[in-house]
Amino acid sequence: MITVELVYAAVDRQVLLTFYVQPGTTVRAALALSGIGAVFPELDLQHCPVGIFGKSVPHPEIRLLKEGERIEIYRPLLADPKEVRRLRAAKAIQAKKGESTI
């Protein structure tokens, strides 16, 4: 057996699970074995984006886990970071223009 961790941060709480899986277990299979679906029934464990130590796993159904790895379940972004930065910059420009007219 190998030890792996699973982390998920919902809006209102965070969970860190440590559990054991057989060598040769895929990331998707480990998600199912972890029991996280019972804690967060809204998660679609077959399609949710995941990563290992901050790096996205493009094919979790074939990626095999190694001893000590941490699986991270990612939530969808509520806003596009590029759009948020663009709006913030536009607001700063407007504020600066407002200051120079006074």
Rank of each mutant, 00 (worst) to 15 (best):
P76V: 06
V27T: 00
Q94F: 11
A79L: 13
G98N: 13
I2V: 07
F40A: 03
A38E: 14
E5G: 13
E99G: 00
A30C: 01
F40W: 02
A92G: 02
D80R: 11
I62A: 14
K91D: 14
L17C: 10
H47N: 15
I62T: 15
A38Y: 02
A38N: 14
Y8V: 09
F53M: 10
K91E: 13
R86Q: 13
I52W: 01
G37P: 06
K97R: 15
E72G: 09
V39H: 12
P81G: 05
K91S: 14
F53N: 08
T18W: 08
V39P: 09
I36L: 11
R70H: 00
C48E: 07
H47M: 08
M1N: 09
G37C: 05
S100N: 10
L33D: 08
T18Q: 12
V50C: 07
V57D: 07
G37H: 05
E67M: 05
G68F: 02
G35R: 11
E83N: 12
Q22W: 00
F53E: 13
G24R: 04
V21L: 02
L43T: 02
A90M: 15
E72D: 12
I62E: 15
G37K: 06
G51P: 05
V7G: 12
I2H: 03
P23A: 14
A32Y: 01
D12Y: 05
L78P: 04
T18D: 11
V21W: 02
R63A: 08
H47G: 10
R13Y: 00
Y74V: 07
E69D: 04
K66M: 13
S34D: 03
V4G: 06
A89Y: 13
T3M: 10
E67Y: 01
F53Y: 13
A29N: 07
I71A: 03
E69R: 04
K91L: 15
T25M: 04
L43G: 01
P76M: 00
I93K: 14
V4R: 07
V21A: 01
V21G: 03
D44M: 02
I62D: 15
V27N: 02
G98P: 09
I93C: 11
V57T: 05
E42L: 14
G35M: 07
E83I: 13
E61W: 04
L78V: 15
V84L: 09
Y20T: 09
L31I: 03
G35F: 06
V11A: 12
S56Y: 15
T26V: 01
D80E: 09
G24C: 05
I36F: 05
P60I: 00
F53S: 13
P49F: 07
A95R: 15
K66A: 14
S56F: 15
A30L: 00
R13G: 04
M1Y: 05
K96D: 15
K55S: 08
G54F: 02
K91V: 08
R63T: 10
E83M: 14
L87P: 12
L64A: 10
L77R: 08
L31M: 01
R13T: 06
P60K: 00
A29S: 12
S56N: 14
T25P: 08
E99I: 12
D12K: 10
L65D: 03
E69I: 02
G54K: 07
T3I: 08
G35C: 07
A89L: 13
R70G: 03
T3G: 08
